[in-house]
Design a protein around this nucleic acid. Structure first.
Lengths: 126, 126
DNA sequence: GCCTTCCGTCAGCGTCCGCTAACGTTCGTC
DNA sequence: GACGAACGTTAGCGGACGCTGACGGAAGGC
């Protein structure tokens, strides 16, 4: 291995999100906090595979783990997506003013609402 | 080709962006329109590898190609990133919306108070 | 026509990745 | 302490991925 393991944290995030199943898992625990077994039951792969996916997502900072007895409850961690968002914004800013102007009005209301809700939610983790 | 290539367009986008080199290429052609040779010269891999990366990016809708004589000029295509942005925003919105609806009565007052304090502190950095 | 430049494509190879089956660990219960 | 439940971990396997080297093709200069 040429020592290119985990240079940028964005790299690990992108690699985790590249897998469709992992995106599905992330969407599943975005609304509720679910146990590993419950998440595994939602898919048609082995529980082992889901456990490995959960490990990858957790290492990427996209998941938060909480133990309750023998169970482990997982929840999506929106902060992990912040860097990806920065990557997109950064390229947009330098690349385009035209397309940005086109979608700005469209996403303004939605972004504002999401940002406000994000503040409410991230407050719970501290 | 077993026809399992492109299920969702988002899937192809994410898979293209998962590769660090492809993100670097995308950033390189975000500001200027560059030829394939110029792009290849910026990296220490073979020109062939870069050409394959360009093909992947083009198929994902992240790149636009324009021919000028024997040269092929590439430029980033922000519309391809718009879908990814919609995915992120969509997950945030639905997730936070559902979560708030589920636990609204239980933690509304506490979360609101905490969030208000957080908003006063961090203000607007978006 | 001939040659060079610029670029994409193909075959092959080493590595990584996601999946499964078997095993190990922790916690609660009797 | 013994048993079962809920998970994580490991070894191994098949497929996908990225890279290289060799080849093919289109456009321009002589």
């Amino acid at each position: 291995m040429p020592a290119a393991a985990a240079g940028e944290p964005l790299d690990e995030t992108m690699r985790a999100l590249a897998e469709p199943r992992r995106r599905a898992i992330l969407r599943l625990v975005a609304t509720d906090e679910l146990a590993a077994g419950e998440i595994a039951a939602a898919f048609e792969v082995t529980r082992t595979a889901v456990s490995q996916h959960l490990t990858v997502l957790k290492n990427a900072g996209l998941l938060s783990e909480r133990r309750e007895g023998t169970r482990r409850l997982y929840r999506a961690r929106p902060e992990g997506l912040a860097e990806l968002r920065e990557f997109l914004d950064g390229m947009w800013a330098s690349a385009l003013d035209d397309a940005r102007r086109l979608v700005e009005a469209d996403r303004a209301a939605r972004a504002a609402r999401a940002a406000r809700a994000a503040e409410d939610r991230s407050e719970e983790d501290r």
